Amino acid sequence: MNPPIATPLGTTRRWKPAPLISGALALHAGAAAAVVADPSTWPWAGGSVIASHLVLMAGGLWPRSAWLGPNWTHLPATAGQQIALTIDDGPDPDVTPRVLDLLDKYGAKATFFCIGELAQRHPHCVEAIVARGHAVENHSQRHRHTFSLQGPAALRREIAAAQDTLTHITGTRPLFFRAPAGLRNPFLEPVLCQLGLQLASWTRRGFDTRSRNADTIAQRLLRGLAPQDILLLHDGHAARDAHGVPVILAVLPKVLEAAARAQLQCTTLRAALVPEPAQAARSQMTL
Rank of each mutant, 00 (worst) to 15 (best):
G171H: 06
E127P: 00
D229C: 02
C125P: 10
G151V: 05
R204K: 12
K109D: 11
V191H: 13
G116Q: 11
A200C: 15
R98D: 13
E189G: 09
L225Q: 00
Q279V: 08
G182I: 05
P152H: 11
S65G: 00
A79W: 01
W15S: 02
P63M: 02
R205Y: 03
P17D: 14
H143S: 08
A33Y: 02
H139N: 02
A58M: 03
P174G: 05
K105H: 03
H139K: 11
W44C: 15
V274G: 07
K254N: 04
A154E: 06
T7V: 15
I5G: 04
T12W: 02
W62R: 01
Q279Y: 12
G151L: 09
R142P: 07
S148C: 12
W15P: 11
A110C: 12
A226E: 11
H139S: 12
S22D: 06
A58R: 00
P190T: 08
P76S: 14
I5Q: 14
D94E: 15
G236M: 07
V274Y: 04
A135I: 06
L155N: 10
I5K: 14
T41L: 14
Y106D: 03
A32S: 11
A77D: 12
L225Y: 10
P186M: 05
G236S: 14
V95A: 10
T216R: 14
D101T: 10
F207C: 09
P43A: 04
